[in-house]
Simulated assay, not measured.
Amino acid sequence: MKKKVAALLITGIMAVAMTACGSSNSGTDNSGSTDGTAKTESSADTDSDWDNTRDITVVSREDGSGTRGAFVELFGIEEEVNGEKVDMTTEEANITNSTSVMMSTVAQDEYAIGYISLGSLDDSVKAVKIDGSEATAENIKNGSYKISRPFNIATKEDLSDAAQDFEDFILSTEGQKVVEDNKYIPLDDVSDYKSNGASGKVVVAGSSSVSPVMEKLKEAYQAVNSDVEVEIQTSDSTTGMQNAIDGVCDIGMASRELKDSEKEAGLTPTVIAMDGIAVVVNNDNPTDELSSDQVKSIFTGDVLTWDEALQ
């Protein structure tokens, strides 16, 4: 009988101990969660895991892009071979066909690097300093940020009255205020807009880098001359120039200087603004600055990982 009572007492004590243990860990599991679910990494934990030994994801624009043409020229990524300039961008580069796709690609890959129009820059990506200078309109004006290029429109002779009126607005005080308000560098010595009284339709085609500010110019223009309809077709600089040559559009857009062959085909370029090219990385990338030589080495494929690039 005594043995039976003792066994019952031991069993009771063990049950109480197990209950106490369970209450001290109430609502937790081995992961440390307080609600019974597995613990997940915070964004801060993820950021701290950035690994500079990982391969760089090089992101470039398509052939024909004015931004790509200006970028490879300004960073020395093109070389002269048998008297012709050859783009030496690595064949491993991911190719995007617009500014918006470039930005979203870099924003989604923490090891990516790309380049965009400065006027298109937003907080979805991070612009790095180049040779110690930040990519800003002010630094382009004072010459400390040297990665800049012109925004051109191109037209043939015998421009329609409607197209001429829109061009006059772009080059006016009012038009250049739109340029400046959208983070581009405006022209000096401009005068107030005076309409020629035109009506009709104007087709503008070309560069995806120029088209965002052209959309703003269109909006402001049609507020003062609703008799002219402006249609903007976005592609790339080379396509825009060819469309202007062929008469498919009235005004072509190019985010680069015009080629001699395009001028010889009858196009006259007009600079409407200056723009910087921002070299951009993912927001989780701790890199804040690169030299021109480092950028060149990355885009030609001479270095493959971030630690190699930053040596």
Results as ranks from 00 to 15, higher is better:
222 Q>C: 13
216 K>I: 03
107 A>H: 03
169 F>P: 00
36 G>M: 05
244 A>I: 05
202 V>L: 04
251 I>T: 02
35 D>P: 06
175 G>E: 00
204 V>N: 00
309 A>R: 06
266 G>M: 08
158 D>V: 04
130 I>C: 02
8 L>C: 07
115 Y>M: 07
17 A>F: 05
75 F>S: 01
221 Y>E: 05
229 E>R: 12
295 V>K: 13
208 S>T: 10
286 P>Q: 12
244 A>H: 06
110 E>A: 05
82 N>L: 12
27 G>M: 06
135 A>I: 07
154 A>S: 15
256 R>S: 13
47 D>L: 12
90 T>S: 01
28 T>R: 15
68 R>I: 06
132 G>W: 11
181 D>C: 09
303 V>G: 06
175 G>S: 03
89 T>H: 01
304 L>E: 14
254 A>D: 13
38 A>P: 02
177 K>T: 13
235 S>C: 09
293 D>S: 15
61 R>T: 10
311 Q>C: 12
117 S>K: 07
181 D>P: 09
290 L>F: 15
216 K>F: 03
12 G>N: 04
10 I>A: 03
307 D>W: 11
219 E>S: 13
57 T>R: 14
178 V>H: 02
247 G>V: 04
209 S>P: 07
234 T>K: 00
98 S>W: 09
244 A>Q: 00
18 M>V: 15
309 A>Q: 14
3 K>N: 07
32 G>M: 11
35 D>C: 07
294 Q>S: 06
85 K>W: 15
197 G>V: 03
118 L>K: 05
134 E>I: 06
136 T>D: 07
254 A>S: 15
242 Q>Y: 08
92 E>Y: 00
196 N>P: 01
4 K>F: 12
157 E>Y: 05
263 K>C: 05
145 Y>E: 02
224 V>T: 04
267 L>Q: 01
228 V>A: 02
38 A>G: 11
197 G>Y: 14
284 D>N: 15
262 E>D: 14
172 S>Q: 11
276 G>Q: 02
284 D>C: 09
72 V>C: 04
79 E>W: 09
84 E>W: 10
267 L>D: 00
37 T>R: 10
205 A>H: 06
296 K>C: 15
89 T>C: 04
198 A>M: 07
221 Y>N: 08
139 N>G: 05
63 D>A: 13
23 S>G: 10
45 D>G: 05
106 V>D: 01
212 P>S: 10
158 D>E: 15
218 K>W: 01
125 V>P: 00
196 N>R: 04
64 G>H: 10
249 C>M: 09
131 D>N: 10
292 S>E: 07
129 K>W: 09
28 T>A: 08
131 D>Q: 12
85 K>N: 13
274 M>L: 13
46 T>F: 14
178 V>P: 01
95 I>Y: 08
198 A>C: 08
239 T>Y: 08
39 K>T: 15
39 K>H: 05
75 F>T: 01
275 D>M: 06
42 S>T: 13
56 I>T: 00
131 D>F: 13
45 D>W: 06
35 D>E: 13
211 S>C: 11
117 S>F: 10
124 S>K: 02
215 E>D: 12
211 S>R: 00
238 T>V: 11
104 S>G: 07
1 M>W: 12
298 I>F: 13
30 N>V: 10
109 D>E: 02
263 K>W: 03
65 S>H: 09
151 F>P: 00
27 G>H: 08
67 T>R: 06
131 D>L: 01
210 V>F: 06
113 I>P: 01
87 D>M: 09
146 K>T: 15
168 D>G: 01
